[in-house]
Computed example of a mutant assay.
Amino acid sequence: MKKTIILFLISLLIVESCNVNSEIIYHKDAASTSVSDIDTREFIAEMKAMTPDSLQQKEFGELDKLPASWTNLYDLEKKEGKLKTANQDSIRIMKKIFMKSNKESNEPSGFSIKLEHFTPEDYLALKSYTKDEKLPLDQNIFNTWDGKTLTINTKNFNLKNIEEALRSKSSNEESEKMEGMMMMFFKKIGTTLRFENKIKSITGKHDWLTKIDDYSVRIEYDLKTMYDKEAKFKNADPTITIVTE
Rank of each mutant, 00 (worst) to 15 (best):
S109W: 05
A86K: 09
S90W: 03
K82R: 13
L66F: 02
N140E: 14
N172Y: 10
A236L: 03
Y123V: 07
K234V: 14
D132F: 08
M50R: 12
K48Y: 07
L166Y: 02
L9G: 10
P52R: 02
M183S: 14
D39H: 09
S128R: 10
K200W: 06
A68Q: 15
M182W: 01
H27W: 01
S11D: 15
D214S: 08
T241K: 13
T51S: 12
H27P: 05
G180C: 08
K160R: 12
I5D: 05
L166T: 00
H206L: 03
G180I: 04
I5P: 03
K232V: 15
F98E: 08
F185Q: 13
T144H: 11
I97P: 01
M184K: 15
S171P: 04
I24K: 01
K58S: 15
E107T: 12
E163S: 09
A45Y: 06
S171G: 11
I93Q: 01
I152W: 03
L193C: 02
D228Q: 09
L150I: 00
I152S: 00
S11W: 01
Y215G: 09
E62M: 09
L193S: 01
E164D: 12
V243I: 09
S168R: 06
E42F: 07
P120Q: 06
L76D: 01
Y129F: 15
L76A: 01
A68L: 14
K211S: 09
T191N: 03
P136V: 04
E173M: 08
M226A: 12
K48A: 15
S109G: 12
L73N: 00
H27M: 08
E116T: 05
F43T: 02
I97F: 04
S170I: 06
K232C: 13
T149E: 10
K205D: 04
S201Y: 00
S54C: 13
G180H: 07
S216A: 14
T154F: 02
V15H: 12
S109H: 02
F233M: 10
T203A: 15
L209W: 02
M184N: 14
F142M: 03
T210F: 01
F186D: 05
N19V: 04
K95Y: 05
T225V: 12
C18N: 14
I202L: 07
T119P: 01
S17Q: 10
D39Q: 13
S171Q: 07
T239N: 12
N21L: 08
K65H: 07
